[in-house]
C-alpha cells in the first residue's frame, strides 16, 4: 500500500504559478531522476435543475469525469451528491472514451447535467524519488468554464505518494491519523524542496491509502483501478462545491 496526498497550491500574488520554481528545484537537486510527463483532465457537471433560481443547493448532484496520466487503463466517472460526497458511485471507462462520453453528457444529457468546469494539467511532471519509495507529481491546473473561457490558472497541483510499511497498511483510519499522515507528507514535501522560498505553510494535503506504486509499467502506472486515488483528485479538484 501507499499513502497519497493531493493538494492545490493557490496562485501567488499577480496570479503567477509556483510550478516553474518547483520544477527548477527538482531539475537542480534531482538531476539524474527521469521526469515523466504528467497530465490530467477533469470535467465537472452539476444537475441542471440545481442551476434554477431558488434551487436547494443541498440537493445538488455532480458527475465527475477524471483521466490521469498515472493510469493509462482507466478513466473514472463518479456521481455524487453535495451533502454526501463520500457516498457516490464510480465506474471506470477506457481513457480513450472519456472525451466522447463527456461530449454525450454535454449534448444528449443536457436536460440532466450542466457543465460547470473543465480543469486540466497539460504539461506537468512526475518523478520518482528516495529510491522509488516516493512519487511526486506536479503541474499547473488550468480551468475553463462557460463564462470565463479557457485557460485561467487555478493553481499548482501536487501529488505526493509514499510507500508505507506493513504496519501502516490501512493507515490512516481516523481523522487524527489523516492529519498525522497529511503532516508527514507536508514534512516530506519540505524535505524535497528544502531551500526553496516557498515554505508550504498553507499546504493541506487531502490524504488516502492508495494502491502500491507499481514501477513495472513506468512511474507508478497502475493496472488495477485505484478508486481511492481517483476520489482524492476529485475531492481536491471539485473545490468547495
Amino acid at each position: 500500500m501507499s499513502i497519497t496526498g493531493v493538494c492545490l497550491l493557490t496562485p501567488q500574488a499577480g496570479n503567477t504559478s509556483t510550478y516553474p520554481k518547483l520544477l527548477a528545484h527538482l531539475s537542480r537537486h534531482f538531476p539524474t531522476q527521469e521526469h515523466e510527463h504528467f497530465h490530467l483532465d477533469y470535467r465537472l457537471f452539476s444537475d441542471t435543475t440545481s442551476q434554477l433560481p431558488g434551487a436547494d443547493v443541498q440537493q445538488r448532484a455532480f458527475t465527475h469525469i477524471l483521466t490521469l496520466s498515472h493510469d493509462t487503463k482507466h478513466a473514472y466517472v463518479r456521481s455524487t451528491k453535495v451533502g454526501d460526497p463520500d457516498q457516490g458511485s464510480m465506474i471506470t471507462i477506457p481513457p480513450s472514451a472519456a472525451d466522447s462520453f463527456a461530449g454525450l453528457v454535454q449534448t444528449k444529457m443536457q436536460s440532466a447535467w450542466f457543465p460547470r468546469q473543465t480543469s486540466s494539467v497539460e504539461s506537468g511532471v512526475s518523478v520518482s524519488l528516495l529510491n522509488d519509495t516516493v512519487r511526486l507529481s506536479i503541474g499547473d491546473v488550468k480551468q475553463s468554464t462557460r463564462s470565463q473561457g479557457a485557460g485561467t490558472l487555478r493553481g499548482t497541483i501536487i501529488e505526493l505518494c509514499k510507500v508505507t510499511n506493513d504496519e501502516q497498511k490501512d493507515w490512516p483510519t481516523s481523522s487524527e491519523e489523516a492529519d498525522q499522515a497529511a503532516n508527514m507528507l507536508q514534512d516530506l514535501l519540505r524535505q524535497i524542496f528544502h531551500g526553496i522560498e516557498e515554505d508550504f505553510g498553507n499546504v493541506k494535503f487531502t490524504v488516502s491509502p492508495t494502491l502500491s506504486i507499481d514501477h513495472s509499467s513506468g512511474y507508478g502506472k497502475t493496472s488495477a483501478p485505484d478508486w481511492d486515488m481517483a476520489k482524492l483528485y476529485i475531492t481536491v479538484l471539485r473545490g468547495q462545491r
Binding site: A61, T92, P225
Partner: peptide, 18 residues
C-alpha cells in the same frame, strides 16, 4: 454512442447518473 464500462457498480452508478 457506445462506451465500454469496465469496472464498478454500473446499476448504482446509472441510478445516481439519472
Amino acid at each position: 454512442s457506445r462506451v465500454k464500462f469496465n469496472q464498478g457498480d454500473m446499476v448504482t452508478f446509472l441510478d445516481m447518473f439519472g
